[in-house]
Nucleic acid binder design. Structure first.
Lengths: 344, 344
DNA sequence: TTGTAGGCGTTATCAT
DNA sequence: ATGATAACGCCTACAA
């Protein structure tokens, strides 16, 4: 059996609480240096490590925060989780990661499960605010801190929690204008949706953006697929084959992974990238730089986003009463090798 | 504040222990159907969820098992984690994933941290047995189950714990013979090593394997790099440029991600894949099928491996006394598009 | 059928 | 400067 505090105390010849005080370097104990040393030695010798269960029970907190990501297989999210954990650890917190498998139903399960663990706070990627509102209320009632990572700052009321907001529009507009400058006039938008997730107003947003720049509505198409590579590939390849000569010359895929699948689909449909089809992804995953053609992409500043999330979390945990905050970040177009002038 | 058992009991007008008995569906309570219903209703109404902290403390177990993977960014490991978690959940266990960032030092920290959490068992990828032996002893003493995922079944004594063993040699031999059949005579082996990890006997193993097949030792080179894509790229590109015309015509990279980085390095060094350089990876990550050239690779049966690991874990948890077991799996060469006849 | 008491490992309060 | 005691939420005997 593992050594408990009691064992350490016994070995050092002091009472458990004394040992506790010393081990935690609490100031109110003016124990003699010599006693302290005895306790430290005993702890080390026994390989003592405090029980998180007991700690959690006693303190009402595990010094642990939860993160729910939609997809464990997407480097974008794992990169975020990684940064997030590092920063958290610097402040003495542990991280537990759950992944909702791109399934909104299951995401609820993840959130609940995190709440069960007497976790101090939850950070998650807000995919569907309406479906999460109940969870958010529960979390609030339980006194848990919540930080939401939110996308398109929709017309909705502001997210009633701390949030890190990524504004796609900047990068997206730059992407579109980059393509327009290259002479493109026919666009496709490929959007991987989570199970149970609706396209929402995305198609309209794209239409609008293009119309403002003189591209008629008929010149762009919105394609929905799932997050599975196989599905992305199939859907886009079929689309290309059916579209024939009236196919778009430029594709914006809403994440890099789908962009990769789409590129191969295009190649298998007889197109070259970027000569016949320009492709822009979103996320700027590291892998993008090592493909046959480096993937032009819209970058999100995950490092800064993770840091902000942690800062907000810590602030909230130390002071429940402050107002909710929102940090905004801009996305940014990174031009690499998958876009080219449209062929005439 | 969150509802406790006491609150539920009070609301239902019964004693806490009665509520406990009912909620846990223990048979010895012959509470009236009506009382039971009152308790269930009260629990639901209050949103009662038992405290994992208290449960863990009382029961000495969190019904949670830990998994330490070397790299959260490698789809191979996340795929394993995913399968592993599904199977575990089917049996009522939760999973906590830590990643050691390809750092053996840090891996120890992860393992310790998992032990701290009153976790029931640990599964991890054994990278360096000697450095883990102390941890293993501790875990055993603490009564934790351990399942190791082990690679090359080295000459060492058998792993003194339950283990899932993947035998690379089958796939590796097939890969080499595949390349020999294509006329290759000069080989490179690219091996990403974790921080603090030694190449060990890998170079000798490769040499041996080739010598047995009539390839002199001078015809193959062992290249070590880290797990960072940037490093893989740099190291391999420099190697190619320095090697010049005496460069190998075939590369076996010890994981798919490195293979991808190496391919781009080769392209940037003016080589075409597979015409000028054949490349074989290891892992068969899904992404490999969507590259410009589908990546020929050595597959590991992660689905079956995850299932075995779970089976062993459960068996061990229900009966400490059985002998240690080892499940063996073979790797398998999957020929796709990155190998070709050597140019003459 | 229900209530009472003890303990899991820890920290906090109060007394010595 | 140190030690005894209670409490965190839950489960499990055992007593009523």
């Amino acid at each position: 059996m593992r050594a408990r505090l009691k064992d350490v105390a016994a070995k050092a010849g002091v009472a458990p609480n004394t040992a506790s005080t010393i081990l935690n370097r609490r100031p109110n104990s003016w124990a003699s240096k010599e006693t302290e040393q005895r306790v430290f030695d005993a702890a080390k010798e026994l390989g003592y490590r405090p029980s998180r269960a007991a700690l959690g029970l006693r303190m009402g907190s595990f010094k642990t925060i939860g993160l729910v990501i939609p997809d464990l297989h997407n480097p974008y999210y794992t990169a975020f989780a990684d940064r997030f954990e590092r920063k958290l650890r610097d402040h003495g917190y542990d991280l537990i990661v759950e992944h909702s498998r791109n399934n909104i139903e299951f995401e609820m399960h993840c959130l609940e499960s995190i709440l069960d663990r007497q976790i101090d706070a939850v950070t998650y990627f807000v995919s569907d605010f309406d479906r999460h509102i109940d969870f958010l209320k529960t979390a609030k009632k339980a006194g848990k801190a919540v930080v939401g990572m939110t996308g398109l700052s929709a017309a909705e009321d502001p997210f009633p929690f701390d949030s890190v907001e990524i504004d796609f529009s900047v990068g997206l507009i730059d992407a579109v204008e980059h393509l327009l400058a290259l002479g493109h006039e026919n666009f496709a938008f490929l959007c991987a949706l989570a199970a149970g997730q609706e396209a929402g107003d995305r198609p309209q947003v794209f239409n609008e953006m293009l119309k403002e720049r003189g591209i008629p509505e008929g010149n762009n198409v919105f394609i929905a697929c799932t997050h599975k590579m196989a599905n992305v590939y199939e859907v886009f390849k079929r689309f290309l084959l059916e579209a024939g000569d009236s196919r778009p010359t430029a594709l914006i895929a809403m994440n890099d992974l789908s962009a990769i699948g789409a590129i191969r689909a295009a190649e298998d449909a007889g197109l070259r990238v970027p000569e016949d089809l320009s492709v822009i992804g979103v996320d700027n995953i590291p892998l993008g730089d090592y493909l046959h053609r480096k993937l032009t992409t819209i970058e999100q500043p995950i490092e800064a986003m993770a840091e902000s999330a942690v800062r907000m979390l810590l602030k909230r945990l130390s002071d429940q009463e402050i107002d909710f905050q929102t940090m905004r970040f801009d996305s940014k177009l990174i031009i690499k090798e998958t876009t080219a002038k449209v062929r005439t």
